[in-house]
């Protein structure tokens, strides 16, 4: 059932990035995945035009975390009218960097034999959470103290019905690691860490109170502009 759930969640997060009417009949939908450290953009391309499409290529604009295609878009056969094809594009994080708004925005250019088309999409920031993002406990305590209070952001996650252990397990599957758990006055406090591909660490305190469906998440980071994206990621992981 874990596998089926994974497939389902992939299906749910598939989005239409380029509608056919904006790209002379080429429709692109897709999703981003991270599996065992490999980031991929999984796409479905459909030809809704009346002529054959060939010569596909893809390029990203510079972006906040240096995402770039790590190989060509592998569509080796012409795409006939009404035909769809799946393509998985491996991504690297060593491309050119430029801060985007929102931070996780990606501008993409796709070309075929007809024209060049552009679209924007947003990737979940958890795609950039590395597998070795569990901070040493001693380092966590020192870093938490060291990061100024002005760099702390607090958010509410409403309507969440997991207990703290279930939440912790779910978050670990997107490389958010629980380092310590304490219970104070009936409230579970989870101390967590994650590390982005560019080496930025994010420290978190997640408060879960039995019987209260509203969690409080506090995020501390030396680059606090990532906090909003990280919060959105907590919400989507915990609610899906």
């Amino acid at each position: 059932s874990g596998w089926i759930n994974k497939q389902l969640s992939d299906v749910i997060s598939v989005q239409v990035w380029l509608p056919a009417m904006k790209a002379k009949g080429l429709e692109i939908s897709g999703t981003f995945v991270r599996r065992a450290g490999v980031i991929q953009m999984e796409m479905n391309l459909t030809n809704k035009a009346m002529s054959v499409m060939t010569d596909f290529a893809i390029q990203f604009n510079r972006n906040s975390f240096g995402l770039a295609s790590a190989g060509p878009l592998q569509i080796l056969t012409p795409l006939s009218p009404n035909q769809s094809i799946e393509a998985a594009l491996p991504l690297s994080t060593v491309g050119p960097v430029m801060k985007m708004e929102p931070l996780n925005n990606l501008q993409v250019a796709v070309k075929n034999n007809i024209d060049v088309f552009y679209f924007s999409c947003q990737y979940p920031i958890s795609m950039l959470f590395v597998e070795d993002g569990k901070m040493e406990r001693q380092v966590f305590l020192a870093t938490w103290k060291d990061i100024p209070n002005d760099n702390e952001s607090q958010f509410q996650i409403k309507d969440c019905h997991l207990n703290s252990d279930a939440a912790s397990n779910k978050l670990q599957s997107s490389n958010i690691f629980t380092i310590a758990k304490r219970t104070v006055e009936g409230q579970d406090m989870l101390y967590q860490s994650m590390k982005l591909t560019n080496g930025i660490w994010v420290l978190a305190e997640l408060r879960v109170q039995a019987g209260n469906p509203n969690y409080t998440i506090s995020l501390k980071c030396r680059a606090p502009e990532v906090s909003q994206c990280v919060f959105q990621n907590y919400e989507s992981v915990l609610k899906n």
Binding site: Q138, L141, R182, V184, Y191, E205
Partner: peptide, 20 residues
Amino acid sequence: ELEDGLDEAFSRLAESRTNP
């Protein structure tokens, strides 16, 4: 001893965040 100290430090952190 270090581990005990860290356990204690996390307890103090959680306590101080609940009752600042």
